[in-house]
């Protein structure tokens, strides 16, 4: 069973059926206590730590920004963060 992922493009929210894996990903920009989705889609591999059905994020401290990212494996699991890391 393939999982559907929430897809974020530049102008509109849509969905995508993950063909090459069961894994969705999501990336959010965290600032002033708010999360803003930056990228969402299908991840190409099931074996990169994509075990959780829910989006439990971990933070990345890049230059000038804190990003939250998750890999998860259930329909639209990447639509919302279920647990902030």
């Amino acid at each position: 069973m393939r999982h559907r992922g929430r897809l974020l493009g530049d102008t509109e929210h849509s969905t995508i059926l993950c063909h090459s894996s069961h894994c969705c990903f999501g990336i959010w920009n965290q600032s002033h206590g708010q999360l803003q989705a930056v990228m969402q889609g299908c991840w190409g591999s099931d074996r990169d730590g994509c075990d959780s059905p829910a989006c439990k994020t971990s933070p990345v401290h890049t230059t000038g920004a804190i990003l939250q990212r998750c890999l998860c494996r259930s329909d639209f699991c990447n639509a919302n963060v279920s647990q902030l890391g």
Partner: peptide
């Protein structure tokens, strides 16, 4: 690494 966003780990 601060330049890698996804994945956080891999095999």
């Amino acid at each position: 690494y601060d330049f890698i966003i996804v994945p956080a780990e891999y095999i």
